[in-house]
Amino acid sequence: MSLQENRIFKAVIKEPWPYTTGAILLAVLNIALFAISNAPWGVTTAFSYWGGWLAKTFGIPVEQWFYFAEPHRQALKLSFFTHSGTLMNLGIIVGALLAALAASQFKLKKIKSVAQVIAAICGGLLMGYGARLAFGCNIGALFSGVASSSLHGWLFMVFMFVGAWIGSKLLVKYFM
Protein backbone atom coordinates (compact mmCIF):
# COMPACT_ATOMS: atom_id res chain seq x y z
CA MET A 1 0.00 0.00 0.00
CA SER A 2 1.46 3.36 -1.03
CA LEU A 3 1.70 6.32 1.31
CA GLN A 4 -1.21 8.05 -0.47
CA GLU A 5 -3.40 4.93 -0.26
CA ASN A 6 -2.51 4.54 3.42
CA ARG A 7 -3.57 8.16 4.12
CA ILE A 8 -6.87 7.66 2.31
CA PHE A 9 -7.49 4.40 4.20
CA LYS A 10 -6.82 6.11 7.53
CA ALA A 11 -9.04 9.09 6.67
CA VAL A 12 -11.97 6.96 5.52
CA ILE A 13 -11.75 3.88 7.77
CA LYS A 14 -9.59 4.49 10.84
CA GLU A 15 -10.29 8.10 11.80
CA PRO A 16 -13.66 9.65 12.70
CA TRP A 17 -15.38 11.57 9.94
CA PRO A 18 -16.23 15.26 10.40
CA TYR A 19 -19.80 15.83 11.60
CA THR A 20 -20.70 17.66 8.39
CA THR A 21 -19.65 14.67 6.28
CA GLY A 22 -21.78 12.35 8.41
CA ALA A 23 -24.74 14.75 8.31
CA ILE A 24 -24.61 15.12 4.53
CA LEU A 25 -24.24 11.37 4.03
CA LEU A 26 -27.19 10.66 6.37
CA ALA A 27 -29.33 13.26 4.57
CA VAL A 28 -28.54 11.84 1.12
CA LEU A 29 -29.18 8.26 2.26
CA ASN A 30 -32.44 9.29 3.97
CA ILE A 31 -33.66 10.97 0.78
CA ALA A 32 -32.66 7.91 -1.27
CA LEU A 33 -34.45 5.58 1.15
CA PHE A 34 -37.59 7.70 1.03
CA ALA A 35 -37.49 7.82 -2.77
CA ILE A 36 -37.02 4.04 -3.04
CA SER A 37 -39.35 2.79 -0.29
CA ASN A 38 -41.88 5.65 -0.13
CA ALA A 39 -41.50 5.65 3.67
CA PRO A 40 -39.26 7.51 6.11
CA TRP A 41 -36.36 5.79 7.84
CA GLY A 42 -37.35 3.89 10.96
CA VAL A 43 -35.80 1.32 13.27
CA THR A 44 -37.98 0.39 16.24
CA THR A 45 -41.12 -0.68 14.38
CA ALA A 46 -39.19 -3.66 13.02
CA PHE A 47 -38.31 -4.61 16.61
CA SER A 48 -42.01 -4.69 17.52
CA TYR A 49 -42.56 -6.98 14.53
CA TRP A 50 -39.75 -9.24 15.77
CA GLY A 51 -41.59 -9.55 19.07
CA GLY A 52 -44.86 -10.24 17.24
CA TRP A 53 -43.30 -12.94 15.07
CA LEU A 54 -41.67 -14.54 18.09
CA ALA A 55 -44.94 -14.45 20.07
CA LYS A 56 -46.80 -16.00 17.10
CA THR A 57 -44.23 -18.79 17.04
CA PHE A 58 -45.24 -19.67 20.61
CA GLY A 59 -48.96 -19.60 19.73
CA ILE A 60 -49.80 -16.19 21.16
CA PRO A 61 -52.61 -14.64 19.06
CA VAL A 62 -50.95 -11.28 18.38
CA GLU A 63 -53.27 -10.67 15.41
CA GLN A 64 -55.92 -9.77 18.01
CA TRP A 65 -53.77 -7.09 19.67
CA PHE A 66 -54.65 -3.48 18.92
CA TYR A 67 -51.09 -2.71 17.79
CA PHE A 68 -51.32 -5.30 15.05
CA ALA A 69 -54.44 -3.80 13.46
CA GLU A 70 -53.93 -2.30 9.99
CA PRO A 71 -51.36 -1.35 8.70
CA HIS A 72 -49.20 -3.46 11.05
CA ARG A 73 -51.26 -6.60 10.43
CA GLN A 74 -49.66 -6.91 6.98
CA ALA A 75 -46.20 -7.15 8.55
CA LEU A 76 -47.24 -10.27 10.48
CA LYS A 77 -47.70 -12.03 7.13
CA LEU A 78 -44.03 -11.39 6.27
CA SER A 79 -41.12 -13.29 7.74
CA PHE A 80 -37.97 -12.15 9.49
CA PHE A 81 -35.89 -12.14 6.29
CA THR A 82 -38.54 -10.68 3.97
CA HIS A 83 -39.30 -7.52 5.95
CA SER A 84 -37.35 -4.51 4.65
CA GLY A 85 -37.05 -2.87 8.09
CA THR A 86 -35.56 -6.04 9.52
CA LEU A 87 -33.03 -6.26 6.70
CA MET A 88 -32.11 -2.61 7.23
CA ASN A 89 -31.68 -3.14 11.00
CA LEU A 90 -29.47 -6.18 10.38
CA GLY A 91 -27.45 -4.07 7.94
CA ILE A 92 -27.02 -1.36 10.59
CA ILE A 93 -25.83 -3.93 13.15
CA VAL A 94 -23.41 -5.64 10.76
CA GLY A 95 -22.22 -2.27 9.40
CA ALA A 96 -21.55 -0.94 12.89
CA LEU A 97 -19.62 -4.10 13.76
CA LEU A 98 -17.53 -3.88 10.59
CA ALA A 99 -16.85 -0.16 11.16
CA ALA A 100 -15.75 -0.82 14.76
CA LEU A 101 -13.52 -3.70 13.63
CA ALA A 102 -12.01 -1.67 10.77
CA ALA A 103 -11.24 1.23 13.11
CA SER A 104 -9.81 -1.17 15.74
CA GLN A 105 -12.43 0.09 18.21
CA PHE A 106 -14.28 -3.15 18.95
CA LYS A 107 -14.04 -4.13 22.61
CA LEU A 108 -15.80 -6.60 24.85
CA LYS A 109 -16.26 -5.10 28.30
CA LYS A 110 -16.55 -6.96 31.54
CA ILE A 111 -19.87 -6.59 33.36
CA LYS A 112 -19.09 -4.75 36.57
CA SER A 113 -22.07 -5.70 38.72
CA VAL A 114 -25.56 -7.16 38.83
CA ALA A 115 -26.85 -3.60 39.32
CA GLN A 116 -25.35 -2.65 35.96
CA VAL A 117 -27.18 -5.55 34.28
CA ILE A 118 -30.49 -4.63 35.96
CA ALA A 119 -30.06 -0.96 35.01
CA ALA A 120 -29.28 -1.93 31.40
CA ILE A 121 -32.35 -4.18 31.17
CA CYS A 122 -34.62 -1.55 32.76
CA GLY A 123 -33.17 1.17 30.54
CA GLY A 124 -33.64 -0.94 27.42
CA LEU A 125 -37.24 -1.78 28.31
CA LEU A 126 -38.01 1.88 29.07
CA MET A 127 -36.40 3.00 25.80
CA GLY A 128 -38.37 0.40 23.84
CA TYR A 129 -41.63 1.37 25.54
CA GLY A 130 -40.91 5.06 24.97
CA ALA A 131 -40.09 4.41 21.32
CA ARG A 132 -43.49 2.78 20.81
CA LEU A 133 -45.27 5.64 22.63
CA ALA A 134 -43.42 8.21 20.51
CA PHE A 135 -43.95 6.16 17.31
CA GLY A 136 -40.22 5.87 16.84
CA CYS A 137 -36.78 6.31 18.29
CA ASN A 138 -34.19 8.94 17.53
CA ILE A 139 -34.29 7.79 13.89
CA GLY A 140 -38.01 7.53 13.13
CA ALA A 141 -39.35 10.14 15.55
CA LEU A 142 -36.42 12.59 15.54
CA PHE A 143 -34.40 12.29 12.35
CA SER A 144 -37.29 11.50 10.00
CA GLY A 145 -39.65 13.80 11.94
CA VAL A 146 -37.35 16.83 11.71
CA ALA A 147 -36.52 16.04 8.08
CA SER A 148 -40.23 16.14 7.22
CA SER A 149 -40.73 19.40 9.19
CA SER A 150 -43.07 17.70 11.63
CA LEU A 151 -43.65 19.34 15.01
CA HIS A 152 -43.38 15.98 16.76
CA GLY A 153 -39.75 15.64 15.61
CA TRP A 154 -38.79 18.96 17.17
CA LEU A 155 -40.64 18.15 20.40
CA PHE A 156 -38.95 14.75 20.47
CA MET A 157 -35.57 16.50 20.19
CA VAL A 158 -36.26 18.77 23.18
CA PHE A 159 -37.43 15.95 25.42
CA MET A 160 -34.68 13.60 24.22
CA PHE A 161 -32.11 16.13 25.44
CA VAL A 162 -33.97 16.53 28.74
CA GLY A 163 -34.03 12.74 29.15
CA ALA A 164 -30.34 12.43 28.26
CA TRP A 165 -29.45 15.11 30.82
CA ILE A 166 -31.48 13.37 33.56
CA GLY A 167 -30.06 9.98 32.58
CA SER A 168 -26.48 11.26 32.68
CA LYS A 169 -27.04 12.68 36.17
CA LEU A 170 -28.44 9.34 37.34
CA LEU A 171 -25.57 7.47 35.69
CA VAL A 172 -22.96 9.60 37.46
CA LYS A 173 -24.77 9.38 40.81
CA TYR A 174 -25.36 5.63 40.85
CA PHE A 175 -22.78 4.01 38.58
CA MET A 176 -19.61 6.11 38.58
Score class of each variant (00 low, 15 high):
8 I>R: 11
9 F>N: 10
10 K>I: 13
11 A>Y: 15
13 I>P: 05
14 K>M: 15
14 K>G: 08
14 K>R: 14
16 P>T: 05
16 P>Y: 11
16 P>K: 12
17 W>K: 08
17 W>L: 14
18 P>F: 13
19 Y>S: 05
20 T>I: 12
20 T>F: 11
20 T>Y: 06
21 T>Y: 11
21 T>Q: 08
24 I>M: 15
24 I>H: 09
24 I>G: 06
25 L>M: 14
26 L>H: 09
27 A>P: 07
28 V>R: 03
30 N>P: 11
30 N>A: 12
30 N>Y: 14
30 N>Q: 04
31 I>N: 04
32 A>V: 13
32 A>S: 11
34 F>H: 07
35 A>F: 10
35 A>R: 11
35 A>M: 14
35 A>T: 13
35 A>N: 15
36 I>G: 09
36 I>A: 15
37 S>H: 15
37 S>R: 15
38 N>T: 03
39 A>C: 11
41 W>T: 11
41 W>C: 01
41 W>S: 08
43 V>D: 05
43 V>E: 07
46 A>E: 05
47 F>P: 01
49 Y>Q: 00
49 Y>D: 00
50 W>I: 07
51 G>R: 01
55 A>I: 01
56 K>V: 00
57 T>R: 10
57 T>P: 04
57 T>C: 10
58 F>H: 12
60 I>W: 04
61 P>A: 10
63 E>P: 00
64 Q>F: 03
67 Y>E: 00
69 A>V: 00
69 A>R: 02
70 E>I: 01
72 H>Q: 00
73 R>L: 06
74 Q>G: 01
75 A>R: 00
75 A>H: 03
75 A>E: 00
76 L>D: 00
77 K>S: 05
77 K>E: 09
78 L>C: 01
79 S>T: 08
80 F>K: 01
80 F>M: 06
81 F>P: 02
81 F>A: 07
82 T>V: 07
82 T>W: 05
83 H>Q: 09
83 H>G: 03
84 S>V: 04
84 S>G: 08
85 G>T: 04
85 G>P: 03
86 T>F: 05
86 T>Q: 09
87 L>T: 02
88 M>I: 12
89 N>L: 08
90 L>S: 02
90 L>K: 01
91 G>S: 14
91 G>W: 10
92 I>D: 06
93 I>R: 04
95 G>A: 10
97 L>A: 10
98 L>A: 14
100 A>Q: 13
101 L>A: 06
102 A>S: 13
102 A>R: 06
102 A>Y: 12
102 A>E: 06
103 A>I: 09
103 A>C: 06
105 Q>T: 04
105 Q>R: 09
106 F>R: 04
106 F>S: 08
107 K>V: 12
108 L>A: 15
109 K>I: 11
109 K>Q: 06
110 K>D: 13
110 K>T: 15
116 Q>A: 07
117 V>A: 05
118 I>A: 14
118 I>Q: 15
118 I>F: 10
118 I>K: 14
119 A>Y: 13
119 A>T: 13
121 I>Q: 10
121 I>S: 09
122 C>Y: 08
123 G>R: 05
123 G>F: 14
123 G>Y: 09
123 G>M: 03
124 G>M: 06
124 G>Q: 05
125 L>H: 05
126 L>D: 11
127 M>G: 01
129 Y>N: 02
130 G>M: 11
131 A>D: 02
131 A>F: 13
131 A>H: 04
132 R>G: 07
132 R>M: 02
133 L>V: 07
134 A>S: 15
134 A>P: 12
136 G>T: 08
136 G>C: 13
